[in-house]
Write a protein that binds this DNA or RNA. Structure first.
Length: 568
RNA sequence: UGUCCUGUGGUGUAAUUGGUAACACGUCUGACUCUGGAUCAGAAGAGUUCAGGUUCGAGCCCUGACAGGACAACCA
C-alpha cells in the first residue's frame, strides 16, 4: 500500500469522558493497572469513517494509558460474514496506522467456550430449549410497555434441556425449530432481559469453522463473554448497546470467578452530513451499482476515502476533532474536508493541471522555442525542492480563468488585461478567436520578455496569477471530479422517502480531456498532488502510463467562487 | 403510557468537579502573498432546553416539566 503522507506524527488525543473513566479506574487500582481495549467489527461489510472514530478511540485509549488493543471479528452470523471483509478490515485498520500485534481474535475462536457456558447455564437451571417458532416467541416477548408471557417450554427439566441442546448441536433438528433461551425475567422492563435467545440452529457453513457447528450463538451471548475471556478491561461501544448492558452483566455474573469484569462504556456513533453511514444502506449502494464499489471515492468507507485521496493522518485528526460524547449529533463534512486540506497543504506536491482547457497562443513568443521555468514543489515545505516546467508559445489555461466580459471583481484574464502565468511571464490578452457559433476557441496574448520567472523589472503589479500547461508537453489525463454523494444534509432523515432519491446526480463528473504538466508522468497510484488553484488530487488505481487518471479529493478554499455566489 | 440515555454559539466539543462560558470548524473584516490557497491580525455569534430550589455563587447539585434518541431480529 502506498501512502505519501509525511504527516504521521503521533497526535495526543483530546481527553474525553472515556479517558476520564479509564483514568479513574487506574487511580483506583482496578485491573492491576492493566488497560486492554478492543475493536470488534463484524466482517459483513467494509469499514467506514464511523468505524475509524471507534478505531482511533480504542487504540487511542490504549496508547494513552500504556495498554493494548485487540482486533476481534464478531463472526457469529455465517449468513452475512465473508472472508473478503475480514481482509479489507485488517487492511483498513493498518492503513489508519494502528497495530494489534498478535492479538487477533474471532468470536468463533470461542464457540466451544460459549457452548460449554451454555451447558453450564442449563445445568444451573438458567437456560432452556424453546420449541416455538420465531413469531410466537416474538409475540410472547411483549412490548416495551407490555410485559411478556412465559414460554410453555420454560420449565422443562434440566436433563431434557441438556439432551435437546446436544441434539441441536448434533444437527438433529431443523433450522428454526428450536432455540436455547436464558431463563431470566419475562416481565422485565428491559426487553433484553425477557429470556433472550442464546443459540439458534443455522446450517450454514461458517467462514472459519466450516460446517463444524450447526448452532451459532447470538451476538448478545457472545460479545461480553469474548471480552471477558480476552481480558478486556474497557469495552467501548456505541449507544444502542447501553440497554444491553444489564444482560451482559448478567452473563458475566454467571461466569466470573474473580472481581475482574470488563467495563462497558457507550459513546455516540459518528454521523456526517451529506452521506449515509449504515452498513445496510452502503451495501445497497454497492449492490445496486449506484457507486462503483465499496471503495468508490464517494463512499464514506475507509477504502473509499483512501481512494479519494484522504490520508490516515487527516482521518485521525478528524476523529480527534469530532470528539467523543454521549450526545447524538451530526458532524459537518466540512470538518472532514478541512482535515484533509490541512494535511495535504503541508505534504502534497504542487503541480499545474488544466481541467477545462482553453488554448492560448502567445503571438510574440518565438515558434518552436521551449524554456524550462523553475517552479516550487511545495511552498509549505522547502525540503520538497524545485522542479522545472516547460513553457512554449502555445499553452492551455483554465476556461474559468478567462472572461470576455468580466464582472467587477474578476481579476483574471480578459481582453486588454495583463496577468501572470505562474512561474513564467506576464501576458496581456489581445484577441479572442471564436467559432461560427460564437464560442471562444482560442485566446491570443502577447508576453513581456522582461517578466521571465514571473516578475517585471519595472515593478508593475498584476491582479492575478493563473496556471497553465504547455501544449506540446501536456500529459492528457482523465480527471474525476467528485462531489457529495447526496444533495441533502441528512439523506436518511426523511422516513417518507427513500434515501436514494437524494443521490446527487453530479457527485461524479468525468473530465476526459485534461492536461497536466509532465512532471507527474511517473506518479504512483494514490500519490497526492495539489493542482495549483484547483484543489487536491490523487492518482487513481485505474491510472496507467497510457492514460493517467486523477481523482479530485477536495477543492481548495475558493474566495472567488464565494464572491460569485454572493452576486447570484 | 414502561426502562435507559442525552439536552452548552450554525456545527462538533471544553469548562481544573460549585467561582462568573473556552476551543475548533464555519461566517465576516483587514494585512500579506507569484495559488482569490496557505499564513497573520481581528470581529460577530451561546449566557448553557424551560421552571423552580439549594448556595455568597449553579452549565455543573436537587425537583419537576419539555424535547430528542435507544429498546419489542432466531442481526450485530
Amino acid at each position: 500500500m502506498t501512502d505519501t503522507t509525511a504527516n504521521n506524527k503521533e497526535i495526543t488525543p483530546k481527553a474525553n469522558f472515556i479517558h476520564q473513566l479509564v483514568e479513574k479506574d487506574l487511580a483506583e487500582g482496578k485491573n492491576n493497572g492493566r488497560v486492554l481495549t478492543r475493536f470488534p467489527p463484524e466482517p459483513n461489510g467494509y469499514l467506514h469513517i464511523g468505524h475509524a472514530k471507534s478505531i482511533c478511540l480504542n487504540f487511542g485509549i490504549a496508547q494513552k494509558f500504556g495498554g493494548l488493543t485487540n482486533l476481534r471479528f464478531d463472526d457469529t452470523n455465517p449468513e452475512k460474514e465473508e472472508d473478503e471483509y475480514v481482509k479489507s478490515i485488517m487492511e483498513d485498520v493498518r492503513w489508519l496506522g494502528f497495530d494489534w500485534g498478535d492479538r487477533l481474535y474471532y468470536a468463533s475462536d470461542f464457540f466451544q467456550n460459549l457452548y460449554d457456558f451454555a451447558v453450564q447455564l442449563i445445568r444451573e437451571g438458567k437456560a432452556y430449549v424453546d420449541d416455538q417458532d420465531a413469531e410466537t416467541i416474538s409475540e410472547q416477548k411483549g412490548s416495551p410497555t407490555r410485559p411478556g408471557v412465559e414460554s410453555p417450554f420454560r420449565s422443562r427439566s434440566i436433563e431434557e434441556n441438556l439432551l435437546l441442546f446436544e441434539g441441536m448441536k448434533n444437527g438433529d433438528f431443523d433450522e428454526g425449530s428450536k432455540v436455547l433461551r436464558a431463563k431470566i425475567d419475562m416481565a422485565s422492563p428491559n426487553m433484553h432481559m425477557r429470556d433472550p435467545i442464546l443459540y439458534r440452529i443455522m446450517k450454514t457453513p461458517h467462514h472459519r469453522t466450516g460446517d463444524k457447528w450447526v448452532i451459532y450463538p447470538l451476538y448478545d451471548f457472545a460479545h461480553g463473554q469474548c471480552d471477558y475471556w480476552e481480558g478486556i478491561t474497557h469495552s467501548v461501544c456505541t449507544l444502542e448497546f447501553e440497554v444491553h448492558r444489564p444482560l451482559y452483566d448478567w452473563f458475566i455474573d454467571q461466569l466470573k470467578d474473580s472481581d475482574y469484569r470488563p467495563r462497558q462504556i457507550e459513546f455516540a456513533r459518528l454521523n456526517l452530513t451529506y452521506t449515509v453511514m449504515s452498513k445496510r444502506k452502503l451495501l445497497e449502494l454497492v449492490r445496486d451499482k449506484y457507486v462503483s464499489g465499496w471503495d468508490d471515492p464517494r463512499m464514506p468507507t475507509i477504502s473509499g476515502l483512501r481512494r479519494r485521496g484522504y490520508t490516515p493522518a487527516s482521518i485521525r485528526n478528524f476523529a480527534d476533532r469530532v470528539g467523543v460524547t454521549k450526545v447524538e449529533g451530526t458532524s459537518d463534512v466540512t470538518l472532514l474536508e478541512h482535515s484533509v486540506r490541512e494535511d495535504l497543504n503541508k505534504t502534497a506536491l504542487r503541480v499545474m493541471g488544466v481541467i477545462n482547457p482553453l488554448k492560448v497562443v502567445i503571438t510574440n513568443y518565438p515558434e518552436g522555442q521551449t524554456e524550462e521555468m523553475d517552479a516550487i514543489n511545495n511552498p509549505e515545505d522547502p525540503e520538497a525542492g524545485i522542479r522545472t516546467v516547460p513553457f512554449t508559445r502555445e499553452i492551455y489555461i483554465e476556461q474559468d480563468d478567462f472572461m470576455e466580459n468580466p464582472p467587477n471583481k474578476f481579476f483574471r484574464l480578459s481582453p486588454g488585461r495583463e496577468v501572470r502565468l505562474r512561474y513564467a511571464y506576464f501576458v496581456t490578452c489581445t484577441d479572442v478567436v471564436k467559432d461560427d457559433q460564437g464560442n471562444i476557441v482560442e485566446v491570443h496574448c502577447t508576453y513581456d520578455p522582461a517578466s521571465r520567472g514571473g516578475n517585471s523589472p519595472d515593478g508593475r503589479k498584476v491582479k492575478s496569477t493563473i496556471h497553465w500547461v504547455s501544449v506540446p508537453h501536456a500529459i492528457e489525463a482523465e480527471v474525476r471530479l467528485y462531489d457529495r454523494l447526496f444533495t441533502v444534509e441528512d439523506p436518511a432523515g426523511d422516513k417518507e422517502r427513500d434515501f436514494k432519491e437524494y443521490l446527487n446526480p453530479d457527485s461524479l463528473v468525468v473530465m476526459p480531456r485534461c492536461f497536466v504538466e509532465p512532471s507527474v508522468k511517473d506518479a504512483s497510484p494514490l500519490s497526492h498532488y495539489q493542482f495549483e488553484r484547483l484543489g487536491y488530487f490523487n492518482v487513481d488505481p485505474d491510472s496507467n502510463p497510457e492514460k493517467m487518471v486523477f481523482n479530485r479529493t477536495v477543492l481548495l478554499k475558493d474566495a472567488w467562487s464565494k464572491e460569485k455566489s454572493k452576486g447570484a
